[in-house]
Design a protein around this nucleic acid. Structure first.
Lengths: 218, 218
DNA sequence: GGCCCTACCAAACGATTGTCTGGGCGGGTA
DNA sequence: TACCCGCCCAGACAATCGTTTGGTAGGGCC
């Protein structure tokens, strides 16, 4: 017998997620296994085992494996972008703001290491439709905008390509997911600070005035 | 009937690869599809189709799908490391040597974009044994060594962490495989030069002497 | 007590996967 | 001519995949 309520619901929203705790648990488990084995190498069986359920029962929570990947990834995507934009609006000298952005981005990435790993590594395993809903290009444009802003400052190299510089910054920062281990020698903040100083100082001219702050328009 | 020659050969070497041209063609095709769809999403059927052969016939050239991935990746791994080490031995000022290394590494990566993509993105899909045969850590150590060398120069920040700095450099450079398109705005050499200047200048103090070369031990 | 709804089970589905077996064709070599 | 061997075909193999179906236990609510 067909459950009419259910059929009606799945038209717009995913299957039952009333028990929010259990739904979050499922997302966490999926994220961990996706991060460890890769999306395509992960079986719904793997996830169901850890979730304590038969694999068919997962369809109580999801409509497809692809949707599960998307749900894992969209939260950390949105959070990361919001985090970046908040940092970008800080009332600071443009150069110092860039430093804060890099520190904060690295910090966010490490704080959400598992989900970020899935986002960065399995992004193009998403279906075309779901991929279009997460325009990662936005990250690049935020950083490029900040670099362009900073170029109003005479301390900043005038010949920087903001897009290219943004890609270098994001590349260095995002790469962290490939090697960071919680038991490593450096703390997240140490890493963020080191990266910020390396990359931002690299944007400055070496012949200009020293690094102390001068009066500048916000 | 069992082909005795074949059984004897496969103990040490892979199956028949006498026709070297055809073998290289297979590697190229596999690399392209691996790069586009990912290793796990690629079917031997996909490869066989483009190779113009039934999928079972691929076992004339390979012993397993995993071996195929390994063969695609090991050449570009070895070439990249050799390239890096050659650049690292250039008779240059340590700071300029770092610049040359970054330019050369970016250059190599783009020149071998397809294979590099597979190496960087599908590395942990290799079997544990094959992965152990490609210690990517070596890349990091070469660059970290160069950073440490450069720190003998007073222009270079004395408080740099060579390992961390190397990871930033390699992160920025390796990330190129994620966004580079041959029809993009910047040429490979422009990208390499921009990255080299950004990253190496970021390693220099801003209070020190200007950038001209001074006499230093090689 | 009867009803509904969430959260699952039990079992199967068709499709696809990597891999293996046995054989055949055709060009070189003796 | 006879044989060998690199190259590939034809077809099957078991295993595994994501997904679907119908059913049910149990708690809350009327």
């Amino acid at each position: 017998m067909v459950n009419r309520r259910r059929a009606a619901r799945t038209d717009t929203a995913p299957p039952f997620r009333a028990d929010d705790g259990r739904w979050q648990e499922l997302l966490d488990i999926a994220a961990r296994i996706f991060a460890r084995k890769g999306y395509r190498s992960t079986t719904l069986q793997d996830i169901a085992d850890e979730f304590g359920v038969l694999k068919g029962s997962l369809y109580h929570y999801i409509r497809s494996k692809d949707e599960l990947l998307f749900e894992v990834v969209r939260t950390v995507y949105a959070g990361g972008l919001e985090n970046l934009r908040e940092l970008a609006e800080a009332e600071l000298d443009p150069v110092e703001r860039l430093r804060a952005v890099i520190r904060g981005h690295v910090r966010y990435l490490i704080d959400n290491l598992v989900e970020t790993t899935v986002l960065l590594h399995e992004f193009d395993q998403l279906s075309a439709e779901n991929r279009a809903r997460l325009p990662i290009r936005d990250y690049q444009e935020v950083v490029a905008g900040l670099v362009a802003d900073a170029q109003a400052d005479p301390r900043v190299k005038p010949d920087l390509d903001p897009q290219l510089t943004a890609l270098a910054v994001l590349g260095a920062a995002n790469w962290v997911y490939r090697w960071y281990r919680p038991d490593g020698r450096r703390s997240p903040d140490q890493i963020g600070a080191a990266y910020a100083d390396l990359l931002v100082d690299g944007m400055l001219t070496r012949t200009g005035a020293p690094l102390d702050r001068r009066p500048r328009a916000l």
